[in-house]
């Protein structure tokens, strides 16, 4: 099994899958597809943890993989879908810039990350590419958060960013202690629930969940 993983560079493939799901966000137009992209992204992340668990052979990594799958792969997407339905959003994402421009900028971001981290400043970890990819995912999701109007896209952008951060931490340390991972997952879950409730409340209070309406709150 281990040989197979190394022979086919499974780790790199999964990492690239994670990056690609982040890049696809630029092209999507509806929130449902955002949620789907996030689901796939989380499954890939869980898969990556499982593969590394096979490589290293540590039990707590298996637990981490399962937990990631359960919360990020199943629980959070279900919750997000429920919010989307309850808010009856118009499905349109309404970006500030066109999709093609946004795609191009994402490409530039990835290139910047690769260019500036090409020497692999961190030598520990299981893959040279995983760190660059994770940082690229973080920047792309931040960029998505900036250019999209709806509050829910902001939440999903944040979730993507967290996945990226998780990957970055994981690629450097071969998995953090279970306690910390548990804490992070719990944080994430609570965060999504709170943000979801807020988004619904914002919608109710302002009859819109567009973030540019929030400027009226400025003192």
């Amino acid at each position: 099994m281990k040989n197979w993983i190394e022979a086919f560079s499974v780790i790199d493939f999964i990492s690239i899958g994670i990056l690609l799901t982040a890049v696809t966000l630029n092209a999507f137009k509806s929130i449902e597809s955002y949620v789907k992209a996030y689901t796939i992204n989380s499954w890939l992340l869980a898969g990556l943890i499982a593969v590394v668990a096979v490589l290293v052979g540590e039990t707590h990594l298996y637990i981490a993989a399962l937990l990631t799958l359960a919360t990020k792969g199943i629980l959070i997407p279900l919750f997000l879908r429920r919010i989307v339905r309850r808010m009856r959003v118009t499905h349109e994402i309404q970006p500030y810039i066109s999709n093609s421009l946004s795609l191009a900028i994402s490409g530039i971001l990835v290139a910047v990350v690769y260019a500036s981290l090409k020497d692999g400043i961190f030598v520990t970890g299981f893959s040279r590419n995983a760190l660059q990819i994770s940082i690229a995912v973080i920047l792309i999701s931040l960029f998505i958060m900036i250019t999209r109007k709806k509050a829910l896209t902001l939440v999903i952008g944040l979730l993507f960013m967290e996945n990226g951060l998780f990957l970055a931490g994981f690629s450097l340390t071969f998995g953090m202690p279970t306690m910390i991972e548990l804490g992070m997952l719990f944080d994430m879950l609570m965060g999504v629930i709170i943000l979801g409730i807020f988004a619904v409340q914002i919608k109710r209070a302002f009859a819109s969940a567009d973030l540019d309406q929030l400027t009226v709150l400025k003192g």
Partner: peptide, 8 residues
């Protein structure tokens, strides 16, 4: 500006 996107 009060705009969340700008802060991000």
């Amino acid at each position: 500006s009060g705009s969340l996107q700008l802060y991000l």
